[in-house]
């Protein structure tokens, strides 16, 4: 019974992890840049959600509609002004640049809104449904449903639209795509915008059951790396799977092994995947 419970909550929380991972994987796929500021983008999404809720009384789940375009614009702006300038440069410089950007984001937020924890209390923050003795967190169930919808929409966009195919082509081979007349610059801006809005959405969805503070991002950045590598860098389906696997491993690991060793387990799985199949679970089919 405890195990089933762990499995259910693991899958639900894994949905949110998946969104963070998908955002990172798209950015990496198109630009080959590991975004160390990914958690900070999520943090900004959380603050947006928080202020939309407390100031304008927009429900966190509805606010996703506002958060997505704002975060898209922010991501596109970052790509255009900063990230784009280092696309060809050394990988360690790319890493440090995104680390620097992360520091700037989290500390600007801290100066503006202090380092206080902000808690978003909705009427359903601790509600749950009980199905056959298993409790299902209501807000998590809703956010899982939204995650599924967004992932499906994104998949359709990437597979069926011209722009989506252009993004995929860029991810597969940047130079070839350029030769074929694809505006690679524009695709990069799109990709970073999508990545940022997905991170922001994940932030919005986790807000009703979690809390917000300027340094909240770093833990999620690390998680996003694990998820992305697990699924195969650049693979959307892989990141979705990876997110759910990590959610389940954490949750089931906490009851079967112990809550303090479960994080070691996550990293150990990460390493094993890196060694046995560095291209990840879905590595071959980029995106």
């Amino acid at each position: 019974m405890v195990l089933v419970q762990a499995l259910v909550s693991g899958i639900l929380i894994g949905g949110v992890y998946a969104l963070i991972g998908i955002g990172l994987t798209i950015i990496f796929g198109v630009m080959r840049v590991i975004n160390f500021a990914h958690g900070e983008l999520m943090m900004i999404g959380m603050y947006l959600t928080y202020f939309l809720f407390t100031l304008l009384h927009v429900d966190p789940f509805v606010s996703v509609l506002i958060t997505i375009p704002i975060m898209f614009a922010f991501g596109a702006f970052l790509q255009k002004t900063v990230i784009n300038r280092i696309l060809g440069s050394l990988p360690q410089n790319q890493i440090l640049l995104t680390i620097g950007l992360g520091l700037i984001m989290s500390n600007t937020v801290m100066l503006a809104f202090t380092s206080d924890y902000k808690i978003l209390t909705t009427s359903y923050s601790s509600s749950s449904l009980h199905i056959a003795g298993i409790s299902v967190s209501q807000p998590l169930a809703v956010s899982f449903a939204i995650t599924v919808a967004i992932t499906a929409a994104l998949y359709w966009f990437l597979m069926k639209t011209d722009t989506g195919q252009a993004i995929r082509a860029t991810a597969q081979d940047r130079e070839a795509a350029q030769l074929m007349g694809i505006n690679v610059r524009r695709m990069s801006i799109l990709a970073f915008g999508i990545g940022a809005s997905l991170a922001g959405t994940a932030g919005a969805l986790i807000s009703p059951t979690y809390y917000v503070f300027p340094q909240v991002g770093s833990a999620f950045t690390l998680k996003a790396f694990v998820i992305t590598v697990l699924g195969g860098m650049g693979s959307v389906v892989g990141a979705t799977l990876g997110g759910i696997i990590i959610g389940v491993v954490e949750s089931v690991g906490a009851v079967t092994i112990s809550s303090d060793w479960k994080d070691v387990l996550v990293f150990a799985i990460f390493l094993v995947v890196l060694l046995v199949k560095p291209s990840g679970l879905m590595g071959k089919s980029r995106m």
């Binding site: 405890v2 762990a6 909550s9 693991g10 409790s135 089931v252 009851v255 809550s259």
Partner: peptide
Amino acid sequence: DEKYQKGAPDFRSTLSKIKG
């Protein structure tokens, strides 16, 4: 005796184990 990493978002499985 359950230790957790500060800031973890999900304690549900640990708590249901304790409930048991």
